Simulated assay, not measured.
Amino acid sequence: MNPTPIHKLLLQAPVKLLLFHAYHLLNSLRSTPTPADPPIRVVCISDTHDQFPEDVPAGDILIHAGDLTNDGSVASIQKQVDWLCSLPHKEIVVISGNHDTYLDPRTRPSLSDDQRAGSVDWKRIHYLQHRALTLTLTIEPSNDAAEGARTHLLSSRPRRRKIKLYGAPQIPACGPMSVHAFQYPRGLDAWSETVPEDTDILITHTPPQYHLDLSLPGGMGCEHLAKEVKRIKPTLHVFGHMHWGAGKMVVWWDGCHHAYESGMGAKSRPIRGLLNPWLWFNLIRVGYRGMRNLVWDKVWGGQGSNTIMVNAAQIHGNTGKLGNTIQVVDI
């Protein structure tokens, strides 16, 4: 799964290319959402593939969004679990990825007897497989809050916050169904009405289509997951799978986002795509609505409904080597 070269995109989907960059430019200029008080620091990783990132930042919750291993064996999964448990985070939450073969009963038979011998000891890790989890965390005051002369007395004391997470590993098929775990045929709706409405943090392995995805020309993420995220509007959505999409962005649930998804979902054929009025209409809508929302944000301080999305893949592209930044989010 590699990005389409720019010269091919200029021939295959030139208007979509403009749409994609216009949306992301306008999005990048908007303010960062204000976290709750007290904030919870979430450290996000994914796609470690048997490797162990160094200098993992401190935080309240550490999330691993799948593909802990390459071969999916019990021994490989256990090594990753042992490493994760050695980290100092208060809570650690993990889901599976398509390479974690043992964790899907449908693909487990593809492993050798030695590879599937035994079972995984999750220790203190919360493993989520189509499951919700509610955590209550005690948040210590930051040094700035504790030392600030004007800080209210209550702000210098530990405070508690309750937060609900939901994790699910399924992805649109990208390899043999008997080997790659938790796959469903591309185009099948495996998401609608599956995520609890009060979810604060959603953890999936696949990205939602067109967001921190291989978005051009057609998007490799799941379109049905994108609709489910829009329905739930969690505070934070963590995923991986598409190594090239690694990063962090804020999705604002407004007219600019609607125009972006409408345009990206339109058919775009070589040369003819330049004549598609629907594509041009949505490009204009992204520009107009994006600028209007930017002014509302910067001048009036308005933010609106949003979700912070994180593609936490650690492997850089198809190099097989760690290289992407570990993402940290305060919510």
Rank of each mutant, 00 (worst) to 15 (best):
Ser73Tyr: 14
Leu26Ile: 11
Cys256Met: 15
Trp280Arg: 03
Trp253Asp: 15
Met249Trp: 04
Tyr288Gly: 02
Gln327Ser: 11
Thr199Leu: 06
Asp67Phe: 07
Arg41Val: 05
Asp198Lys: 00
Thr69His: 10
Ser28Ala: 10
Trp83His: 15
Asn276Cys: 08
Ala36Gly: 15
Gly187Pro: 02
Trp253Gln: 11
Thr194Pro: 01
Asn98Lys: 06
His99Gly: 05
Glu140Met: 12
Leu26Lys: 01
His224Asp: 10
Ile315Arg: 04
Leu154Trp: 10
Trp244Gln: 02
Lys230Glu: 15
Lys248Gln: 11
Val329Leu: 09
Gly218Ser: 03
Pro185His: 06
Leu84Phe: 13
Ser268Tyr: 00
Thr138Glu: 07
Gln78Val: 07
Gly118Asn: 10
Asn98Ile: 13
Leu26Met: 03
Ala190Leu: 00
Thr107His: 02
Pro270Trp: 07
Trp278Arg: 11
His89Gly: 01
Asp113Glu: 15
Val238Met: 07
Ser192Glu: 03
Ser46Leu: 02
Thr151Glu: 07
Lys227Glu: 09
Val250Gln: 08
Gly221Tyr: 00
Lys227Val: 05
Tyr166Cys: 03
Ala266Met: 01
Ala36Trp: 05
Phe239Gly: 01
Thr307Met: 03
Arg186Gln: 03
Thr32Asn: 13
Val328His: 05
Leu165Ile: 11
Val74Asp: 09
Arg106Met: 04
His205Ala: 05
Arg41Lys: 14
Asn143Asp: 14
Val251Asp: 06
Tyr210His: 04
Ser178Cys: 06
Asn70Leu: 09
Val328Gln: 07
Gln80Val: 15
Leu188Tyr: 06
Met264Cys: 04
Thr136Phe: 02
Phe182His: 05
Leu275Ala: 10
His49Gln: 11
Ala312Trp: 08
Pro109Phe: 14
His205Glu: 04
Thr307Gln: 04
Lys321Arg: 09
Asp121Met: 04
Gln78Trp: 04
Gly66Arg: 10
Gly97Asn: 10
Gly323Cys: 11
Arg106His: 08
Ser28His: 04
Tyr288Trp: 09
